[in-house]
Write a protein that binds this DNA or RNA. Structure first.
Lengths: 217, 217, 217, 217
DNA sequence: AATGAATGAGCCTTCATTCAT
DNA sequence: GATGAATGAAGGCTCATTCAT
């Protein structure tokens, strides 16, 4: 909905194609999606995708680009920086968890699409990593760095970041498995985020103490 | 079915098909794989798959079944039961991490195939969850249960299990992303498993103390 | 659907497909016909059938529907009703015989296709029976009913109708055999219809007298 | 069961193939039958047909030959010749009707196979016509000839024969249609044969009187 | 600017048949 | 003598794409 002022909504067909493509790509991935399905959903001609985006892949990249642009506005590093790192971590965990598990909105398509990219990487993966994931990864490492008192490039810091991310994205990536193992789970982002934050913060404290035994003396 | 101990199979073509299919399915998933590619790789006729396995899907399930059978011999729950739970958890983390990140061998195909199932589930997913994942999930919950002193069916126990699993499988699922974010990482299962175990155990202790404050009084 | 009076159809490819399919289906039946042959004959691409008719079966049903629609205009029951029943029977016999034995024209495809349906019924058989055959069957029974003075649902009336129909369609169904047994036959619909009518009417009279002996006293 | 003394049951596989093939060919026709289905039904190897009969068609011809040989023993012309022609006609009608509508026995396979040959003639049709149909056709014409007092080669005699045959075989050929038009029909060969005979005999009498008005003067 | 029609490559599968044993 | 394995041609169908309007 929040689009660049000059373009976009001027061309309703193009817009509907992007909307429909986002939904379908998010659900079925690039290879699993057919151009016909997108066009049907968008009420457009079969040739519309090729006309407007040259390619199925052209449309795919455009969908990703748009979704990422919307996502870029959230989780601003500077806003988190002023908080105590423990609180910043809690907020970040909740934000990621909420984002990766809410569905349907434009701004979250790239999350689901990522899941497909992980099993069938396309050229678009590099772009998503650079533009969306890396900035957050660095923000997260900064926060962890100030908790465990190791440089943000330190391998331990990195592993801690991956531990946090792994716990969070697991609920999105492995959803089909989790649904089978734990059907009674009524997904509650706040509760789960709280659990992950508690476990992670305790873990980080332990790692801080362990990695700097000399400081304690 | 009855594999001679020294060899693969009495039927060389069938065996080559399974081998080739494992590699390709692991790389491209079910839908992304063509029967032709498998047959070409196996040096067999296009109709060979249908002859030996009735279906593309029949071959797929057989590949999964075989890969799971090989994996089933590891991580015996009874062997872990005699260890102190902290040590059992360490071993289990290392085992899972090692298994999900070694590549190419038959016994690990189902891990990669799982990644595809997560983004494009087929009817085979149920089988893998039931036969491979659920038993380990229950073993893991048992171990965690005796650490945090909550029933193994308790939601908190389950969330803890998912936290451990999430950290571990992240290194396999998100490998393409991790490679881009941290190219210098020289994957060392022992080191990473140690990190995950340390962080998780500290986290579990914190959750144990938090969830039963009354015990401490 | 809406055929211009002078031309076949607004869509030349679709029209050519129907034309070609009619010829081939009439000759070889549903299962014996290949989509490729139809498309070759129609000068169209292999995928044309799927594009225009969704299915091989979709095309088949459309051919049948069109052929039946053309045939539906003949043998109006109301026109026959005003005639003395003996004359109506003669006309009907001639009409059926003529229709089932003229060849090549669109309106008679369903007759030949029926021959295939009889040995290899498909889901289309029900439709043809309902839409084309049953109405004529009922008209015929009405006529016979007023000749033999039994209700049109009476088993005897039905058997008489089948006797008439059997004689008529035999010349179409068993044509390959008749050609071998009687090669000198120069098919003359008028002559044969006259024969069948004469034999049948005499037979009906006998059945009328036999079934109602009490009337004669 | 009644086989040539020298051969046949010596080779049980060959025998089972013939048996199974008869059933399946009778049900589905030549083109509609798969070698695999026959072999499965016969408990034989896929290659058995090619081994024993060289071809799918070789098996087909053999089935026809055998079924015809068994059929040749019935309806002996000399037995009918001693009866009054009206009675001979009644018997013949009943025999044909019974034969074409009984199912499952070896001796009647060729009847059903004929139905398929009529819509998809193969090279076997000539043989069946010559060896089975023509002799009966001639017997029938002889009988009719002596009823209507015209030479057995006379076109009228031939048409009368076709009228009788047409009525009879209709119940076999058009069975799928008759089942839909008259589902309550509980096929009773004796009743229907009686009806056909009555109608036909009355018709023949009329034709006799009409065709020879000079004799009446 | 935008579309309905058409394309051809490629998919999985089935079939009668042949081959090595 | 008889079989299980293997073959390659052909089947219907789907797909992203292009073309003529």
């Amino acid at each position: 909905m929040v689009l660049s002022p000059s373009q976009e909504d001027h061309d309703p067909t193009r817009s509907r194609l992007l909307e429909a493509a986002g939904v379908v790509f998010a659900e079925k991935g690039f290879a699993g999606t057919t151009v016909r399905e997108i066009c049907l959903k968008a009420g457009a001609n079969v040739a519309a995708v090729n006309y407007h985006f040259r390619d199925k892949q052209g449309l795919y990249i455009q969908v990703l680009r748009q979704s990422m642009a919307l996502a870029a506005n959230e989780d601003r590093a500077d806003e988190l920086a002023v908080l105590p790192p423990e609180e910043a971590l809690r907020r970040m965990i909740f934000g990621m968890l909420h984002r990766t598990n809410s569905c349907g909105e434009r701004g979250t398509w790239h999350v689901r699409i990522m899941a497909h990219e992980l099993s069938q990487p396309t050229a678009a993966l590099d772009r998503v990593v650079q533009e969306v994931i890396r900035p957050r990864y660095e923000t997260l490492r900064q926060i962890i760095s100030s908790i465990i008192r190791l440089p943000s490039e330190h391998p331990t810091t990195r592993m801690c970041a991956h531990s946090v991310i792994g716990q969070v994205v697991h609920y999105a990536h492995a959803r089909p498995v989790i649904d089978r193992l734990w059907p009674e789970l009524n997904f509650n982002a706040e509760q789960i985020a709280g659990h992950i934050a508690t476990l992670s913060l305790a873990g980080l404290q332990a790692i801080r103490n362990q990695s700097k035994p000399q400081d304690l003396i």
